[in-house]
Amino acid sequence: MKVRISFLFIVGLLICRVGWAQNQNPISIGVTYQGGQVLVHSAKIRHLRGVQPQGIELNLQSQTTGTKFWHQLYRYPRLGISLIAFDYREPSLGKSLAASIYLNKYVHQGPQYTISVRIGTGLAYFSNHFDRKINATNNVISSPLNAVIQLRTEFERRISPQFSVVAAAGINHYSNGGNSKPNLGINIGTLTLGLNYHSQAAFEPLVQPWPMPGHKLSFIMSGSVGVKQRNDFDTATYVVKSVAVGAMQQINPKSTLLVGLEGFYDPSLFPRRNWDPRVKPGTTPDIKRVALNFGHELTIGKLGFGTYLGWYAYRPYKSDAAFYQRLEMRYPLTHNIYVAAGLKLHDFIKADVIEYRLGLRLWKH
Rank of each mutant, 00 (worst) to 15 (best):
Y324D: 02
V225T: 10
G310L: 08
D276L: 09
L206T: 11
A244H: 14
K280A: 04
R278Q: 15
A321L: 10
T284D: 08
K241R: 14
V259C: 09
N274V: 03
Q325T: 05
P285C: 02
A321H: 14
Q229Y: 06
H198S: 04
I251L: 14
S319D: 13
Q208R: 15
Q325C: 07
S218Y: 12
G301H: 06
W275Q: 08
S319P: 00
H198G: 02
N274F: 12
K241D: 02
P253I: 03
F264T: 03
V225L: 15
S268P: 06
L257R: 10
Y324G: 03
G263K: 14
D320N: 12
V279D: 04
G304L: 13
K288S: 14
Q200A: 11
L258N: 09
P205F: 04
A291S: 10
N196T: 08
G304F: 10
V243S: 08
V279F: 13
A201M: 04
L269E: 04
P277W: 14
A244Y: 14
L257H: 09
R315V: 07
G223V: 07
R273D: 01
F305H: 13
W311G: 09
G310T: 08
N231D: 15
S268M: 11
V290E: 03
G214Q: 15
G194N: 01
S268A: 13
G260E: 05
A291V: 01
P285I: 11
D266M: 12
L261N: 00
L269Y: 12
S319T: 06
V243C: 10
F203M: 03
L193R: 01
Y265T: 06
N293S: 09
Y314V: 05
A321V: 01
F203L: 00
P271L: 00
Y238M: 01
T283M: 12
W311A: 11
P211E: 01
G282L: 06
A202D: 13
D320A: 10
F294H: 14
